[in-house]
Write a protein that binds this DNA or RNA. Structure first.
Length: 502
RNA sequence: GCCCCGUUGGUGCAGCGGCCUAGCACGUCGGCCUUUCAAGCCGGAGAUCACGGGUUCGAAUCCCGUACGGGGUACCA
């Protein structure tokens, strides 16, 4: 294995809304790289836009990372050698950098007002020209700026972009990127409210925090030359750039609520396991180089390589995620799986949990006993609700008509139920294996086929046509309750038959 | 409009100049197994490797163009 130097990577979201799976995947790649190289994974909150600031967002971001198990080495809550990790608390740093750039002649104060800018854009568009700033503020005098300030006008700081030249940037996934600087206009680095723009703030912070790899969405590629320009002017090194492809919806468009594209926490609530989501997202834009698909987080981390990140966007497939979830559920630790299932059962009926008439808390032992047979027949955790609720209700109301399975008549139902009651009264010990033996033995004495024998019993015991395996279910239900249900089922069926013949 | 990135079956990936009569997985169809449902196993359909030119003895793989898709073009990130 090639030895790699420890990477310092940061996940730097803006607290402007819920955390989307696209952002989450970026965080994943950050984390994988950090863990693979023995480096650090850092969270930095980029709250430089006070207009879009959402106070709940930061919690949502941390909760999402936490759920996926992406542990932080440095961040707002846990601190670190470069604290604070929230940009609004580091304003001085950016203002100093801006001042330095102004002194060196790489940036200037601009008092062009937003209305003027809007009018300019409008005129350009009307004339069929490319809309953009025309660098009109470049040669303002100190006096002019002071005058504007005195009048209460807005003053920003703009970076002065060279009029000519080509910028080449090495991208770790795309190779060499080339940009024509003459197409790039002077851009704002410090807003009139004293806050920096993304361009300035992240460059300063990445340098201050010793970031080695900037992993971010490909929507940043076009503005990357700005970042390198700032670095050159500030005389600080350029980190490695890793622009990852977007995740799109089935129609190729950006993921949105419309597409069922949800935030990370919605997947949690819908019953996906963190390992499955992590595994699925990792493979959306990266692969280990062979056909391996199901992997643990440690496997992914150890096989992760930035060079193997794809350069084209991937469409999100809910179907494949479901399959992958099932795969992880099938191999998950039994206790851990049970723990994940419990809240799905205990939440209120209206939220998809057990019927409200079922008493809380739910008996974890019963659930755990069923986990081995449940795990391979659920796609998402809440699927267990409909599968095992019959174990928790006092009474069950089977539909007699459903007891008559394929190629069966009423007589067979009676035979099955009666024989079942008799056999289950005797079985010792009352466990799955013995129950199976006893019930299977009945095929000979009754002349019924296995299916004909078990269908009425299943329906009487569970009130479902589709249920978990019978013998395990009966064992967990217990002898008393099983026999009671069989008797009631028998009565109900007899009533049903006589009503029908009337 | 201009700039940037991309393009392998419906979807996610493998492929890095000959091993490709293009492999794997999801999905789909059929079968087996079977107490229901799953899981598992076996098999099928599905791709002129976006298109057109080059380079080469040889191209899905390298180069150019076109088309299409996406992104950017803010005192948003």
């Amino acid at each position: 294995m090639r030895t790699s130097t420890p990477a310092r990577v940061r996940f730097a979201p803006s607290p402007t809304g819920v955390m989307h799976i696209g952002g989450l995947r970026t965080a994943l790649y950050d984390w994988f790289l950090a863990r693979k190289t023995g480096g650090q994974f850092i969270l930095r909150i980029e709250d430089t836009d006070r207009n879009r600031y959402d106070p709940d967002a930061e919690w949502h971001i941390k909760e999402s990372l936490n759920w996926l198990g992406l542990d932080l080495d440095e961040g707002p809550d846990i601190g670190g050698p470069h604290a604070p990790y929230t940009q609004s608390e580091r304003l001085e740093l950016y203002q100093d950098a801006a001042a330095k750039l102004i002194d060196a002649g790489d940036a200037y104060y601009d008092d062009t007002q937003s209305e003027e800018l809007a009018a300019l854009r409008q005129r350009q568009q009307a004339a069929g020209q490319a809309p953009g700033y025309d660098n009109r503020g470049r040669y303002r005098t100190a006096e002019q700026i002071q005058e504007s300030r005195d009048e209460g006008l807005d003053v920003v700081v703009r970076f002065k972009v060279p009029d000519h030249g080509e910028m080449q940037i090495e991208d770790e996934v795309r190779g060499r990127l080339k940009f024509d600087l003459s197409l790039l206009q002077d851009f704002v680095i410090l807003k009139s409210d004293g806050f920096p723009t993304y361009h300035l703030a992240h460059v300063v912070d990445d340098y201050e925090m010793g970031i080695t790899h900037v992993i971010r969405g490909e929507e940043w590629i076009p503005s990357c030359p700005r970042h390198v320009l700032i670095q050159q002017a500030l005389d600080i090194p350029t980190p490695k750039y890793v622009h990852v492809p977007l995740i799109t919806a089935q129609d190729g468009a950006k993921l949105s609520k419309r597409h069922g594209a949800q935030s990370a926490l919605e997947y949690r609530d819908a019953g996906y396991t963190p390992d499955a989501v992590l595994n699925y997202l990792a493979l959306l834009g990266w692969s280990p180089g062979d056909d391996t698909e199901i992997m643990t987080r440690d496997e992914i981390a150890s096989r992760f390589e930035v060079e193997r990140i794809l350069s084209h966007p991937a469409k999100f497939s809910a179907q494949k995620l479901e399959w992958m979830n099932q795969q992880h559920i099938m191999t998950a630790d039994e206790d851990a799986l049970t723990d994940m299932i419990m809240p799905c059962l205990e939440r209120p009926e209206e939220d998809g949990g057990f019927l409200d008439e079922i008493e809380r808390p739910i008996d974890r032992g019963i659930v755990k006993a069923m986990v081995p047979v449940l795990r391979e027949r659920i796609k998402v955790l809440p699927d267990v609700v409909a599968l095992i609720d019959f174990l928790f209700v006092d009474e069950v109301h089977p539909n007699p008509e459903e007891m008559i399975g394929r190629r069966m008549d009423a007589e067979m139902v009676l035979t099955s139920l009666n024989a079942g009651i008799e056999a289950l009264e005797e079985v010792e010990p009352f466990d799955g294996e013995s129950i199976e033996q006893a019930l299977r033995g009945l095929t000979e004495s009754t002349g019924l086929k296995a299916g004909q024998l078990f269908t009425p019993i299943r329906v009487a015991v569970t009130a479902k046509r589709i249920a978990p395996p019978l013998f395990e279910s009966i064992e967990v239900l217990g002898r008393e309750r099983t026999i009671t249900r069989l008797r009631k089922g028998l009565e109900a069926f007899e009533r049903h038959v006589s009503n029908r013949s009337d």
